[in-house]
Write a protein that binds this DNA or RNA. Sequence first.
DNA 1: ATAAGTAAGTGCGGTGAACTAACTAATGTG
DNA 2: CACATTAGTTAGTTCACCGCACTTACTTAT
Lengths: 371, 371
Amino acid sequence: MGRPLRPQGKLLQEDARRHHRSLLLQQLFREGPASRADLARASGLTRVTVSDLVGEMLSEGFVSELGAPAESRVGKPPTLVGLAADSHHIIALDLSETDRMSGAVVNLAGTVLSRHEVHVDGAEGEQAVELVQQLAAELMDMTERPVLGMGVGSPGVVDTAGTVIDAPNLAWTDTPLAARLAEVFDVPVFVANDANTAVLGEHTFGESGDGGLMVIRVGTGVGAGLVLGGSLLHGHLGASGEIGHVVVDPDGERCACSRTGCLETVLSAPRLRRRTAEPGVDAPAVLTEVGTQLGEVLAPIVAALNLHEIVLSGPAELLGGPLLDAADRTIRERTMPVSSAGLTVRTSKLGDDVVVVGAAVLVLAGELGVS
Amino acid sequence: MGRPLRPQGKLLQEDARRHHRSLLLQQLFREGPASRADLARASGLTRVTVSDLVGEMLSEGFVSELGAPAESRVGKPPTLVGLAADSHHIIALDLSETDRMSGAVVNLAGTVLSRHEVHVDGAEGEQAVELVQQLAAELMDMTERPVLGMGVGSPGVVDTAGTVIDAPNLAWTDTPLAARLAEVFDVPVFVANDANTAVLGEHTFGESGDGGLMVIRVGTGVGAGLVLGGSLLHGHLGASGEIGHVVVDPDGERCACSRTGCLETVLSAPRLRRRTAEPGVDAPAVLTEVGTQLGEVLAPIVAALNLHEIVLSGPAELLGGPLLDAADRTIRERTMPVSSAGLTVRTSKLGDDVVVVGAAVLVLAGELGVS
DNA sequence: ATAAGTAAGTGCGGTGAACTAACTAATGTG
DNA sequence: CACATTAGTTAGTTCACCGCACTTACTTAT
């Protein structure tokens, strides 16, 4: 995916320069416009170097000069420079929903500019790849700006090179999706698991802090993504976050995976809808029960990782109330204060866009070092 | 701890050079002696640069020339250079045991050269700090070589600066242990939680692979350390790995922490000894039961992190047999194959030295970038 | 109105660490 | 014995950053 990786851990001056550019972009991205002098102070680089780097980025269009600020102080007034959010656009795709593939044109600030979607209609394997290409092509046509890259949140297990190792729903095994798309569109392509892009989206745009973050996506199934120490956790074989089939109740229902009582047998969206809609059922009680079970799964993870935030993403009407409360309570009951004191459990504010926005973050991080 | 950190993320040429030095040292450390030309090929640097770096390290004593290898091929025979394991020594301390503090002089290859220990005898607070200083001083006297640094595995929660936030056994709260020792001995000092140093020791010297590694230490209590993506996980507030007080059985025994059925109420070493020694008790059955409970705690963690290896460290006669088997089995029963396929569960081969050797790794990593 | 002070941003020469090119040295092979 | 091959060195180049000194453009004090 993206550029050819430099071999080994060799560090060139060029790398240092890219790193410093990222530092400045990151600052502009997170804190908004600033003068060159401000950037120098924030980065520790000299004003000279910052001027040079800013000049380079101006000529590439990534930043633009915004003139002097309104208030005035002593000395020469600064020239503010800011991220030129629409200098380049990003094509972001969300393949996680069962019935459709959706995508968006996103700018550098993470704002969704236009959307598009195609129906899956049972497409599988090669057909599904072609459908992705079609969706991507239509989105490419929706922007006039140069495209920085393409980010994809795909279901299933995805390796770091952007090859989908296994995605049952789309019947993909060892499908080099990033390579296929890069070949067709000739832009850097980044592919990751949908829960992983979701956690990136939440991490970058979801008002989350700096500690460990876990996003739990509840849809047809249950998946999770983790950001630890500021970067995405991939896991030994790229299968981190696969908590949907952790057994929560050995005496529970039979699961499609042949085990009994997997988390997914109680927590998936369709399953929750069915149970809470049954006549004569105490819906809050059901949600509390499921939330407790979720909390039991999460407690050991919270304790082991000393997480800062857990975010539930999915149908808010199911996840937001008693379920969230019960999960939160259970985690605190089952771990020490030192583990749970710094923990927040909440629902996502980004809604259905988490995956698509996270896919854009994949590109921002990969190409500009911003996130 | 160690050196003053450079401000911000600024990357100087100097940093690049240190990085490249580490690259070469790392290669020699892991693969043994090699010629300059070999190092150049392995690192991607040019022979010229490697020669220069090697020359520098020769003059500092970290590496030494070993002459030509036995077999001969075409061309000028290479001069092998190798890590000079005894050019510098490391003082490594293990404060995790309740009754004593132990320490060792360790060389750069991780070999324990001499040991020493002092009895705690109920020392607490400032007294305990002085005891650590005394132990360290005695170890400093046991080596003639320059001391690269001091590494300490301490019980309790330790922050990245080497301040012990909270260690009930020694009655330490916000005790700046690293700073205190650095002041007295004027060498770089690194302090980390004992479970964290243990996982570093295991990671570097325990024949473990490259994926995520978790070491579970069973002693008076239960703690864990995690290495993910090659580096130690600290957690939001430095409290990662605190799994001893995860509740495994809400109807279980009351724990000192005021909760009921914490993992420590069934898994601590004294507790296991007592239960298995009771007359008329089926010891293997007890161990299997506890192993199963441990497996239940670990399953969600394995699934979430896609770990590569779990290592149990502690009394082998208790942990090695039925307990390990039951934990292994339970994890596999309760997670998907994609999570558990790449997983190995085993006991540590480093025995009681894990913590002390890990403390040495702390110094190696901090000072030489080697691990 | 003029001078002094302050902060922003820019040429210019210097430095350190890596690079390329071209060498010498020491061996095996045809 | 010439020649290819590999190791290691010397000499000179490139690149990114730094410090210093400068200009520019503003506010504040006299």
